[in-house]
Amino acid sequence: MTAHRLAVIIKNSLNDDEFLLVRQNRPPKFGDGEYDSYIDSDLWDLPWASLTPLDGEDSQSEIVLEGAESCSDKLNLMKFNVDVALDQIFSQLGFRGPTGGHWAVWKYVEEADLGPLPHLNTVFIIGKLKFEAENAQELSKWMSVPSCLQFLLEVKPNNDRMGPLVVAGLLCNLARSRMLKVPPALRYQEYPPGVTIVPMGSRTGKPFWTTNLVVVAPDIISSRCVDSSFAAYGEALIIDPGCHSKFHDELMEIVTALPRKLVVFVTHHHHDHVDGLSIIQKCNPDATLLAHENTMRRIGKGDWSLGYTSISGGEEICIGGERLKAIFAPVP
């Protein structure tokens, strides 16, 4: 089952290089004192709303979207309630009543299946409004592609953060890692740039059926990590290669495209986190494996027969000049 949402790229009528972002609601409290004490910086993303089918076979949307035929082989937008979705989005921006404007389909993105919730695809449309939002200074702001890209690439404490719809809708061709090659059959999400999540079929527990392979592969390899205190150095990092054997060819393709200076980190010993280790060992026997010693006791020689670097939490590793820290998080 696939769900859909509508994301809107609203261009600034006074500056064609800018588009409108909306400040996202903060997540609800978790009920844990330590967890709830952490406060994220503001997250800004394109305004969006759920896209629901119209009632009745003869019903059609009243909104005419230029270029709707560009995705007609995958989705008939005339059969979805675009009107209601746009009203919900305009309400977020402080609009009341008709807004006018001309809208065109920008792209249709089939997103990675991160499960177990229904698979979610996004229709991006683009256009301009005739009026400015009443609460623009509080809930929304105009941003350009270069400014969004700078926030993504130069992460600093307490800085504003850019959401995944900005990346998928506007920045994917600019920010996508050129080092990582993902087989066309696999859908994936790169967010932030240089960090890619690839859901792959695995021997995981229901209702899940995939485990997320995480690949950190910065395009620019810097020399910022110059001291000798790091547990491991590498130009790319793979976390939890636990795909099912029928996806080993795809995993091999991913590993082969990565630099030889590869670090592999497994968070724990379950099948859906280690089933692909043997493929990495075969493709790149020079790779450095990081794992807790208790994890390694449970990993069979058929999965990994070479040496490894033991970590227990607190160690730092250097990937492409970026400093990462391992955190020990035992399950109660």
Rank of each mutant, 00 (worst) to 15 (best):
F151M: 15
L152H: 12
V155W: 08
K156V: 14
P157R: 09
P157H: 10
G163H: 12
P164Q: 03
L165M: 11
L165A: 09
L170N: 01
L171P: 09
C172V: 14
C172W: 14
N173W: 09
A175V: 15
R176M: 11
R176W: 04
M179H: 10
L180F: 02
K181E: 08
K181P: 01
K181Y: 05
P183Q: 04
P184C: 07
A185E: 15
A185C: 15
L186A: 11
R187L: 11
E190Y: 08
E190K: 07
G194D: 05
K206E: 14
W209G: 07
N212G: 08
L213W: 00
L213F: 01
V214D: 01
V215F: 02
V215K: 03
D219T: 01
D219Q: 01
I220N: 03
I220F: 01
I221T: 02
S223L: 09
C225Q: 04
C225W: 03
D227L: 06
D227A: 08
S228F: 12
F230I: 03
Y233D: 06
Y233Q: 10
G234E: 05
E235V: 02
I238C: 01
I239T: 06
I239K: 04
I239H: 04
I239P: 04
D240P: 02
G242F: 00
G242E: 02
H244E: 03
K246F: 04
H248N: 06
L251C: 04
L251K: 03
M252S: 15
M252D: 15
E253C: 09
I254S: 07
L258Y: 13
P259L: 10
